[in-house]
Amino acid sequence: MKPAPFEYHVPTTVEEALAHLRHYGGEAKVLAGGQSLMPLLNFRLSRPAALVDINRIGALSYIEEENGTLRLGALTRQRAIERSDVVRSRLPLLTEATALVGHLPIRTRGTIGGSLAHADPSAEYPAVLTALEGQVVARGAGGERILRPEEFFRTYLTTTLGPDEILTEVRLPIPPPGSGWAFEEFSRRHGDFALVGIAVLLLVEGTRCAKARLVAAGAGPVPARLRGAEEILERDGLTEQSFEAAAARAAELVEPDSDIHASAAFRRHLTRVFTLRALRKAARRIHGGH
């Protein structure tokens, strides 16, 4: 399990990195945290002609709050996000989800941009990006493209990022204070990819649910935004009955697959169970409750 040979470049600026990518015309891979790419290289399942290692582009690592949005450099490590006070206070949903990403030494290296660009539909970050209606910034030769989740995730492990583009920034709108949130998931072991994960965000006006966001991870080729279930909550309010109706609707909306860890039917069922659990938890947290 040793990687096949590759050319190796360590740019210190995004422009330099883009130049390398252009040079290889799709035959190069961007190496960020490496926690997904390196296993593929070691198994020789991925044999790129070159690696463009962006770990020395210092300008890609930051967490900044600006005009109601949290901007995270694509190279920001998951560990930094987990520890960040500004993330904890502004986007506790992201903090909660981050603690569920792999294990501590994985989060040391793993980055938010890498996780999103890898686009594993069972992973936590794609679901969080979708639930927060965030954006990613892709930079290429022609400049920047700003992509919404539905424009970014295409299918399993596939995004609309071009071969000569780099994901440079993640923009996550900060929900208004008093919102409810939760990330709940079911995995076989601690730290495993979720069989099903549910991200919930509840925006309230007074006692009314102004907006509900419900996203399922692991229940389809891309993170599944469960609009039909959200509408139930927005229409019927935050009651146990509406939670149950929304959870039942969520289970109808997802399109999970079967694999050795869970049948499609079980994933569909788990979608209902965890939607309900996440909704209850999120509702308890409205206006700072626990």
Binding site: R188, R189, H190, G191, F193, I260, H261
Partner: peptide, 28 residues
């Protein structure tokens, strides 16, 4: 509860990595 070397009908191993062959951890 966790570990099985699973094969499909054609004899292909389905649990060829530690992502799929699940060894219990301290949490389990």
């Amino acid at each position: 509860l966790y570990e099985e070397l699973m094969y499909d009908e054609e004899g292909q191993l389905l649990t060829g990595t530690f992502m799929d062959y699940l060894v219990p951890t301290a949490s389990e």
